[in-house]
């Protein structure tokens, strides 16, 4: 599958608003679309495969089965830094990719459906599977 074009994310609003509620308040799905695109995997897998990985992840990690939980986790890194919803999509992608890189460097990886993935990209798949 060709990687879907990331939709420009234009979200304004109070930064203090929790990320999950941002997600909830944006049913149009911009957040979801950006966050649920595991960049590398989308180069080599079709949507069905990514969705399958996501389903498997949610079966594996029972505390991360809901979209708002996954969004919260994806928008915050291990150091507690989070990305604001006001950022454009490329900033969000960069943030996510940075976290994927950190995951691999710090051993935050797991095997889902046979794929050796960073936790962050596995969460992206999980979010994708909920779309």
């Amino acid at each position: 599958m060709k990687r879907k074009t990331f939709i420009y994310l234009s979200v304004t609003g109070a930064v203090a608003t929790s990320l999950s509620s941002l997600y909830c308040h944006n049913p149009a799905g911009q957040w979801k679309t950006v966050l649920s695109q595991p960049e590398f995997l989308s180069h080599i897998c079709d949507a069905k495969t990514i969705s399958g990985i996501g389903n498997a992840y949610r079966s594996l990690v029972l505390t991360e089965t809901k979209a708002d939980q996954l969004v919260d986790l994806l928008m915050t890194d291990k150091g507690g830094n989070s990305i604001s919803g006001t950022q454009d999509s490329s900033s969000i992608i960069a943030f996510i990719n940075q976290n994927i890189e950190k995951d691999f460097k710090t051993g935050q990886t797991l095997v889902v459906s046979g794929w050796v993935l960073s936790v962050t990209e596995a969460r992206q798949c999980a979010l994708f599977s909920l779309a």
Partner: peptide
Amino acid sequence: LGQEVGREGIGRVRML
């Protein structure tokens, strides 16, 4: 190998 190619940002591994 999956962890290493991921860490170096060059690829992914899928186990059978």
